[in-house]
C-alpha cells in the first residue's frame, strides 16, 4: 500500500466576485510527484491554488494537506504550514526596496508567528542555512544585493532559495516562470528539478508552458472551471484533449528531436 497523498482535494468549489470560479474539483497529489495545472486564462487555476493554500475561502468541498484538514478560514497547524512553500509570479518591488537577498531568504527560514529571530542576522544556524540555500540555488554572490536590483532570472532563483532554506514537503508555483526569457526559463526548470529530487518536494505548478509540462511533470490537471481531464502528460495533453480545453486556435507543438550532438548546417 502506497503512502497517503500529500494533498487531497475533494469536490472543491470557490466563488470569486460572485462567480463560481472553481466547480467541484477533486484530485490528489502523490508524494514527491510533479503535477501541472493547465488551462486557458480565466480557467480558475490561480483561484484553485489560492483556495488550496487557504488564501481564499471555499464555498464547498474539502482540502487535506499532509493529513490535516484545511480550516474554513485557511487554518492549518503551524507544523504543517511550515512544510508548505509557495512561489508567486511577482513581488511588489517598486523603486528602491531596502531589503537584501540574505535578509529576505532569512525570513524564509523563520517560523510563522511573532519572534525576533531576525535580530542581528539571527542565530549561527540561521546564517548557515541562508548561506547554504543561496549556494544551492546559484545565488552565493547575491547575498548583499538588494532584491529590487535583481533581474527576473536572479529573482526566481532567490525565491527558490527562500523555499529551500528550510526543509519543506509541498511546493506550489503560480506561473513562476512568467516574464522569463527562454534560457532563464530552462535554467529555472533545471534548478527546480534538481532541488525537487534532493528535497523530496511534492510540486504543484500552474503553467502555460505545455512543452515543459510534457517533459518534466508526472501528472497534468486540465482545468477550465471544472476539471476537464487529468492523467499522465501524454494522456492529458493529447491533441484531442487540448482542443477540448483550449479550443481550435491552439496548435499543439511537440519538440521531439534531441539537440545533443546537433551540428550547424
Amino acid at each position: 500500500m502506497g503512502s497517503p497523498p500529500v494533498v487531497q482535494v475533494q469536490n472543491l468549489s470557490v466563488l470569486r466576485d460572485g462567480l463560481l470560479a472553481v466547480d467541484g474539483v477533486s484530485f490528489a497529489l502523490a508524494r514527491e510527484t510533479d503535477t501541472a495545472l493547465v488551462g486557458p486564462n480565466g480557467a480558475g487555476k490561480s483561484t484553485l491554488v489560492a483556495a488550496l493554500l487557504g488564501l481564499l475561502p471555499r464555498s464547498g468541498g474539502s482540502v487535506r494537506i499532509l493529513g490535516q484538514e484545511l480550516g474554513p478560514a485557511g487554518e492549518l497547524p503551524r507544523s504543517v504550514r511550515s512544510q508548505i512553500a509557495y512561489l508567486p509570479q511577482t513581488l511588489a518591488l517598486q523603486g528602491r526596496f531596502p531589503l537584501t537577498v540574505s535578509e529576505f531568504v532569512g525570513f524564509g527560514f523563520d517560523l510563522p508567528g511573532l519572534n525576533l529571530a531576525w535580530l542581528g542576522g539571527g542565530s549561527r544556524g540561521r546564517r548557515q542555512a541562508i548561506q547554504q540555500a543561496l549556494q544551492r540555488t546559484g545565488c552565493g554572490d547575491l547575498g548583499v544585493r538588494l532584491l529590487s536590483e535583481l533581474s527576473g532570472g536572479q529573482l526566481k532563483r532567490v525565491l527558490l532559495a527562500f523555499c529551500v532554506v528550510r526543509p519543506r514537503r509541498l511546493l506550489v508555483l503560480d506561473e513562476a516562470q512568467a516574464g522569463l526569457d527562454v534560457p532563464s526559463t530552462e535554467q529555472f526548470h533545471q534548478l527546480l528539478l534538481e532541488l525537487r529530487r534532493q528535497e523530496g518536494w511534492t510540486v504543484l505548478q500552474v503553467s502555460h508552458d505545455l512543452e515543459m509540462v510534457r517533459r518534466s511533470c508526472d501528472q497534468v490537471l486540465c482545468l477550465n472551471r471544472r476539471l476537464r481531464c487529468s492523467g499522465s502528460p501524454d494522456h492529458a495533453l493529447s491533441p484531442e484533449r487540448l482542443l477540448e480545453l483550449y479550443g481550435p486556435n491552439v496548435v499543439p507543438y511537440r519538440h521531439q528531436h534531441n539537440h545533443a550532438g546537433a551540428q550547424r548546417p
Binding site: 488564501l55 512553500a85 508567486p88 511588489a92 531589503l99 510563522p112
Partner: peptide
Amino acid sequence: TLNSDLAGAFG
C-alpha cells in the same frame, strides 16, 4: 509588503 499571497502561504 512584498506579496500578500506569499505572506499568507508562509503562515
